[in-house]
Amino acid sequence: MIAGDRNPWPALGRVFLALSYVFLFLPLVLLVVFSFQANRFPGLPLQGWTLAWYEKMIDQGTLLPALGHSMLVSPAAATVGTIIGFFAAYALNRFDFPGKTVLLGIIALPILIPPLILGVAFLGLLARVHLNGTLFSIFLTHVVLVTAPALSVIQLRLSQMPRQIEEAAWDLGATELQTLMRVVLPFAVPGILGGWLLAFTFSFDEFIIAWFVSGFDQTLPVAIYSILVASMEPTLNAIGAIVFAISALVLIGIEVLLLPLLFRKDTEEA
């Protein structure tokens, strides 16, 4: 900035940033490392590499079925939430109507209300209609939770769509439905995929609602918690490594496929 004035802050900032990364990644890295270590309790000294915990996890019998449940519930909830979110995002992007701000606020509420409270509330309703304790009930409640994040990503994409593109389609003779399917939907595809991935993550990691609502068909976070309160088990490291791998895939998918599309300045616009 000023000649001869040495600025120590950028260097300090980078050191601080490095320490922050250590803090943020420490639990993730250690969890994966100790999933391959023979130690009964994670700690030093390391006792050698092994796949024993993975074998034990496969034999153990609750974690893998729980992963299966999660891989059933989360994609389903993400898909329904994304479909609902797409149509709502389209309407919110295009139309004006009284109470729009209030509606936007209500749509965001499920992410702002602590999931603990939602969990108790969902249980109250579902127990009343005898739907509690099933995977289906988790699906129903997770859709509420994941719709808002999916919607916000899709809305971000739709807000990049010049209004004239839709008008051009009408002007050329397309009906509103034709315009929606042939112009708006293709334009929104990156947002829809991004919204789906975000929705999937929200549902896949969600613990407390699933804890209240699920019965014997536990999702993965609930199953992990059940084991965790009983004892510390390195089989958790093994399942954790698998779950982190899934999350990393989602994250790479978002970074490589979607962020460039989502944040690209549209060259098509004048």
Binding site: L28, F41, P42, D205, L236, V243
Partner: peptide, 24 residues
């Protein structure tokens, strides 16, 4: 942001193993 995408329960479990009396 990356850690946000990983399971919260698992991260807490990992912190348990890090912070516990004979932990990491």
């Amino acid at each position: 942001i990356a850690p946000f995408w990983s399971s919260y329960v698992l991260r807490l479990y990992s912190w348990q193993t890090i912070l516990s009396k004979n932990g990491v």
